[in-house]
Structure formats: structure tokens, C-alpha cells
Simulated assay, not measured.
Amino acid sequence: MNVGAHVSIAGGLDNAIANQIEVGGNCGQIFTHSPQVWQDPNIGEGEADAFRDGSATEDLGPWVIHSSYLVNLCTPKEGLREKSIDSMQKEVDAADRLDIPYVNVHLGAHTGAGVENGLDNAASALDELDIPDGVTVLVESDAGSGTKLGGDFEHLAEVLDRSEQDLDVCLDTAHAFAAGYDLSSEAAVEETVAEFDDVVGLDHLKYVHLNDSKHECGTNKDEHAHIGEGLIGEEGMRAFVNHPAIEDVPLALETPHEDGRGFAWNIEKVRELRGEN
């Protein structure tokens, strides 16, 4: 099973290798810079070489880069749209340098432009990217609060359909649950996975952010919990990670660091639920 965490690159991007190994992961996610500011990836040639070599030596991957939180593909504001496109171009170029196959992005919020215009904005913004061969942009499912898009599976399917790019999807379990897709039992997991397949297509599911939720299904509240200890719960998490459709999909955890537990505990829990321990 490919399971890992979103690990820090503090002190150098290549430090992600040791950080991932330390928590017991064999794949995972990184930011190339602080996600709270407009900043270009600042990756030295030595760092890039060390990251590629370390990933190959330790057999880590696939990795995914998470784009800046400031990126808003749905925005009707031209200045923000241009900044978002520029930021995404730099991320896909960084992925190419690092031999990382995926860049993950939220669609963002339409901020009053309306759902249809927001989806058109997102698709056309993505179409402006020059995505290198070997790199795929993943559109992430959202919790769906306010005017944010991506909470409905239909939003994801529409952007994939409207864009000329070959896009795929990252499903966040906590976000999907918050958006109203139940995952708290074996039957609920079967229904939600079947709906995803019907609307988006399981062939587009290339990565999963595996997180439990601190809030009830359908609340649109995005707050992650330890695996099996949130409102999705152990039954739901066990059913999800053992579902045949998820078997070969890499899992990246964004679980909290609290109660004396962090990524290592959660990764171990996932392996336990999968029956690997």
C-alpha cells in the first residue's frame, strides 16, 4: 500500500525524504514554499538532485505537490486569476524538475460569479497552463462551504470535461464527508464510491487525501481528525481503505498533530485497518 503524509521541506526540499521515512510513509505530499503567500518555488539544483535521488533510493512515491492556498481558479477577478495561473505554472514546472507526477489544486471560490461561470473560469485558467509531459494536475474535492466549488462531484466532472487538459482528481475523504458524501459505514462507502465512479469516473482518481472528520456529514466544515477517531470513524475508514477501487490509489494523510499523536500514529493505523500489521 502506498501511504504517507504531507511532510515539511523546512531546511531544504530534500529533507522531505527523511521526514517521510521518519513517519513510516512511502509516498506523500509537499508544498514547494509557504502556501500562505505568493512565492515562487525556490529549489536549488542540489536540492532537486537530492530529492530525486533520495526518492529513487528509498523507493518513495508517487509524490504530489500541493499548490498555494491563495490560488483561485474560479475567480472572476482578472488580477487574482493571472496570479493563480502564474503560480500553477511554476508548480507544474517544479514538479517536472523533481520527477513528481502530480500537482494538486483546489478549484477555489466563484465569489458571486455563479457556479457555471466559476467552473468555466477554472477550466479556462487550467487551459492556459503549459503542463510538462509526465505531470498531471489533480483537481481536489472540497468541503463546499460558501461559494467554493468542488464540493459536488459534478463540479469536478464538469471541469474535467470543459478543460482541454488531461486532468485527474484527488479525493479528500474529510472534504467529501463534509460536503455530504457519507463514508461512515461499509454501505455508505460503497454508495459514495459508486457515485464518484458514475459522475467522475474511477479512472480519474489518482490520489486520496485520507483524513477523518471532526464534524458531521454534510456540515461543510473542514476540520481533520485522527484516522478512525472522527465522525467517519473506524468502520468507515476500514471500508474505504479496503475498497477494491482504492487498493492501488496512493494515500496522503493531512491528519492533525494533537493528543500526543501525529503522522506516524495515523499511518500505522491505516496499515492496521488495511490488515498489513
Rank of each mutant, 00 (worst) to 15 (best):
L160P: 00
K206W: 00
D133R: 13
H215W: 04
F177D: 00
D198Y: 14
E164L: 10
L107S: 05
L210P: 05
S213L: 05
G180F: 10
A174H: 10
A123M: 10
D172N: 12
L129N: 07
T219Q: 02
V105M: 09
G108P: 06
D168R: 09
L129I: 06
D152I: 02
G150F: 01
L160T: 00
E195T: 15
V115Y: 08
H155T: 00
D222M: 11
E190L: 12
L138N: 04
E116D: 14
T136A: 06
E186C: 10
F177T: 02
A123V: 12
G134F: 05
L167V: 09
V115W: 07
G218S: 01
G146C: 00
S145F: 01
H215C: 06
F196M: 12
L167Y: 03
L107R: 10
H110W: 11
E128L: 14
G150K: 00
G151Q: 01
H215V: 03
N117G: 13
D182N: 13
A194H: 13
D161T: 09
A157K: 05
H209V: 07
A109R: 12
V189H: 08
D152F: 04
T136Q: 06
G150M: 00
L183Q: 02
T219C: 05
S213H: 09
D133L: 07
A179T: 13
D197F: 12
T173Q: 05
V115K: 15
E190W: 06
Y181H: 14
L119K: 10
V115G: 03
V135H: 05
G150L: 04
F177G: 01
N121I: 09
E191D: 15
D161F: 03
L183E: 02
N117E: 15
Q165F: 04
H209Y: 04
K206V: 02
E158D: 08
F177Y: 14
H155F: 00
G146Y: 00
N121R: 11
N121E: 10
S145D: 06
A109L: 11
A113M: 11
N211E: 00
H224L: 00
L107T: 09
E191W: 14
G218T: 02
D133T: 08
F177Q: 02
V199W: 10
L119W: 08
E195C: 09
D127Y: 09
E186R: 13
E116W: 07
E190H: 13
K214W: 02
L171S: 04
G114T: 15
G180N: 08
A176C: 13
V137Y: 04
T147G: 06
T219P: 03
G114Y: 12
S124E: 14
N104D: 11
K214D: 00
G112V: 15
C217Q: 06
A225C: 01
V208C: 13
A176Y: 05
D130Q: 14
V208W: 07
D120G: 15
H106E: 11
L156I: 07
A109E: 13
